[in-house]
């Protein structure tokens, strides 16, 4: 099964490493200029997943939560990884103040945490991933 098929069927990861390994695999097959919407509550592992994406794109610098400045940009050997945290955004129009379009240079991968906050501005071909956490600490991941 391809990674996309696996994710559509749903995968349950039991460690941060396993989640990142999954993200690495996904990063390798993503078309250029993909927007990846990462749905899930506080603590489900969204930033951990983006760290895996970064590794898959060959980015070596540390990827941390961008909550404060709302997004960070990481330059890989070929791709730009933009990591947007829409946690504090309440309206899609607020995106304009981030001037993100001015910094998104193709080929890029745009990973968005709390995408539901800016649902109106997500491209129609965005990939939506649901991340969760079970009572015993396992992380289910599924591609919509």
């Amino acid at each position: 099964m391809s990674i996309l098929e696996q994710l559509r069927a749903g995968v349950i990861t039991t460690s941060a490493e396993a989640m990142q390994a999954l993200a690495v695999e996904l990063a390798l097959v993503l078309p250029d200029d993909t927007t990846l919407a990462l749905h899930g509550d506080l603590g489900v592992g969204k930033t951990t997943f983006v760290q895996g994406l970064a590794r898959g794109l060959g980015i070596t610098e540390p990827v941390t939560s961008p909550t404060f400045t709302l997004y960070t940009l990481h330059r890989g050997p070929r791709h730009l990884l933009a990591h947007l945290d829409a946690y504090r955004l309440t309206d899609a129009a607020q995106l304009d103040a981030l001037m993100l379009d001015d910094f998104l240079i193709s080929p890029y991968c745009l990973a968005i945490e709390w995408p539901e906050n800016i649902a109106a501005r997500l491209p129609s071909n965005a990939l939506h991933l649901d991340l969760g956490i079970t009572a015993d600490g396992r992380h289910p991941i599924r591609l919509r």
Binding site: T47, P62, T67
Partner: peptide, 17 residues
Amino acid sequence: GTRDDAAGEALDKGAKL
């Protein structure tokens, strides 16, 4: 540096929880 959240962010998110 931090591998994930900043210290202030940990406090802010803790407050939210």
